[in-house]
Structure formats: structure tokens, C-alpha cells
Design a protein around this nucleic acid. Sequence first.
DNA 1: CGGACAACCTGGTTGC
DNA 2: TGCAACCAGGTTGTCC
Length: 277
Amino acid sequence: MPELPEVETVRRQLAGTLIGRTIERITLRRTDVIRGAGPRRFRETLRGQTVEALDRRGKALIVRLSDGVALLVHLGMTGRFCLAPPGVPLAEHTHMIAYLADGGRLVFRDPRRFGHLELTCADALDETETLRNVGIDALAPEFTAARLSEALAGRTAPIKAALLDQRRFAGVGNIYACEALFRAHIDPTALCGELDAQQVKALHRALRAVLRASIAAEGTTIADYVNGNGVPGGFQRRLRVYGREGEACPSRGCTGTIARIVQSNRSTFYCPLCQRA
DNA sequence: CGGACAACCTGGTTGC
DNA sequence: TGCAACCAGGTTGTCC
């Protein structure tokens, strides 16, 4: 489900509704989604904490609490972190419930359980399991075309695989990697070293543009992603290649057909005609 | 070291 | 209808 735009959408919505509210108690229905502390310490540390801010780095959500405590949320493929509607039974696969002092319920739900919650100190974020291998955010002002160029330098992997690597810059997943490569007219199978400076610049611009456009549309919903208010995103209608195998290439004047190939076990969608190394 | 690949999970869809 | 195979927004460990 969640790449940078989807996590950013959740962050913005929760920032609007959660800041200043206090956790009264925590219920864990499964403990294997918890990191950084055992279940008992997890519950006891969060009890009585007030939400002060919500931040994000790449695909990770950072909930900053009173007392210098932080809760890191990674949604994996199917995770949701949102307020449960009042008066309705909690959905299946709800692993953690934070009962708020005002009666609200903040829940973590994740059928596939690739996501997790990690408890940490706000000043130790870089050492956490969730963030220790995560580079700068792909929408941070410091992530310039020059930084992208550095990130790709010396690599021999195909560019598509390099975009999914969160270590040098973070937030790009399978959908937006495909979409950015299409917008920049770059062949996803091209090796990093084969791109010239102009292509790297075009790719940087395409990455930032597609991430921003998706945030403006409140993210992409393929199957079951919903934002903090339970509403699906709108960007799936504006995807140009992802999930569009067999359709005509949407580039003006291009007569190609969108193809699907597999790269490092993930689907890549692209136009073999207008995306060139 | 980097890169390819399997593994981790559940659920929905497809095809026989 | 039933069931197996395949697919899915991510990350990590293992092997080369």
C-alpha cells in the first residue's frame, strides 16, 4: 500500500486531528508487530503520553510524544494507522489499539503484518531498526539532482532497482519508480551507469513531480489503502503505466503498448518504445 | 562490496 | 463449485 505520498497523506490528516490528544491505555492483540520494547514496556511507556507532532522520513511515520518518546510506524504493504470510527467493532487484523483519553481509538491494522510499530527515544531515531538504513527523504529540499547523481554513482544495478533502495534516499516504491521512469522517458532496465547527466536531472524532476502530484491527490489506492479518514486516494486514476499492461502508451504521438516485466521479483510497467536508455 | 533471490504473511483474483 | 496458482503498495537475510 504505502509509499511516500500515502504515508504523507496519513501524516497530514493525523497531524490535523491527533496533536494534543492523550493516550489513556494501549491494547496489543498481537505482540509480534512491536519493536524496540517488549509488550509490557510498550504499553506502560505509551500510557499517559500526549501527541506533540507527526513527522515522516521516507515511508516511516514518526509520532512524537511527550517525555521525548517517539513511536515509529511502518505500514509495510497493507498497514493502516488511523482513528477507528466510533461505535463500530474493530476490524479484523487490528493489532494495536491506543485508547485516547477523549474516547477516540487510534489503531494499527495490518493483515499481512509486514509493517510494525517501534518505540524509541526521539533523540535516537537514527539508531532504530526502522530508520537506521533509511536515507534522506525524497522530498526533502536537500535531495537535489546532484544528490540523486551521487546516489547512483558506482552502482551497476538497473535504475528501477536502485530507485527502490531506501538507503541513500527514501520514499520511492514500486508504483512511483515506474511512474517517474516513464515521465523521464528512461528505460527501467538501463543500468545506473548508463544514464547521462541530463537523464539524471530529468529523473530527479520526474520523481519530485510525481510524488507531489500524488500527495495532492491524497495518494494511490490499488486495493485497500485508505487515508487517516478511511477515504481512498485519487492518484490511481492518474497513473500512466503502473497496472496498465496492454494499454496504449499515453505519451503524445507514441504508438507503443505498455509492457510488464519482472525486475528483482517486482513488476515493472513501462513503454518499450518511448522509454530508452 | 553490490546485486539477485527467497522468505516473511494474508487475501483477492484467475484459470482449469 | 473447488482448488491451485499467481498476484499485491515492502524489507531483510542469505548466497554468490
